[in-house]
Simulated scan of single mutants.
Amino acid sequence: MQTKAILGLSEVNALLDAAQREAEANGWKVTVAVTDDSGELLGLRRLDGASPMTAMISAQKARSAALSHKETQVFERMINEGRNAFLSAPLQGLMEGGVPVEVDGRVIGAVGVSGVKADQDAQVARASIAAVI
């Protein structure tokens, strides 16, 4: 029988806390979502002042990153470079800001961020993961 690492409540809270620190250090009003490896939401934190819409977008970015095992910037770049057929893929949140969480080369979840520029969303997500994993 195989075993795998998972994101427990303490790791989810640590990821959300680290993301919040990064966002607040830069004065960014964002929402951060954390999913498990199947894209199911484990935690969500909408910082004061973040648009309500960012809750849905951050969760979709995290889900897409978890299911695909890729950063969502890959999909945004693909679409921007003309591969418009990819818009029909059964994923949402195909904008930069979703980053898979990996342990020992295996995706165990993802962090999605929404609320600022795409590269800033990704910066918060990556900083969150780097601080915890």
Rank of each mutant, 00 (worst) to 15 (best):
Q2A: 15
Q2D: 13
T3S: 13
K4G: 09
K4F: 05
K4M: 09
L7A: 09
L7I: 11
G8R: 11
S10M: 10
E11H: 08
E11N: 00
E11W: 00
N13H: 09
D17Q: 12
E22R: 08
A23L: 10
A25W: 06
V32R: 01
V32F: 04
A33T: 02
V34Y: 01
V34R: 03
D36H: 11
E40Y: 08
R45I: 07
L47E: 04
L47P: 00
G49K: 08
G49A: 10
G49I: 12
S51C: 08
S51T: 12
M53V: 10
M53F: 11
Q60G: 01
K61I: 05
S64E: 06
A65V: 07
L67Q: 08
S68Y: 10
S68V: 14
F75M: 05
R77Q: 14
I79L: 14
N84L: 08
N84W: 14
F86M: 15
P90L: 07
L91E: 02
Q92S: 15
Q92M: 15
G93I: 04
M95I: 12
V99Q: 06
P100V: 04
V101D: 00
V103Q: 13
V107T: 13
G109I: 01
G115K: 00
Q120T: 06
D121R: 05
A122V: 07
A122G: 10
V124W: 02
R126Q: 14
S128L: 06
I129Y: 05
V132S: 10
V132A: 00
V132Y: 03
I133R: 14
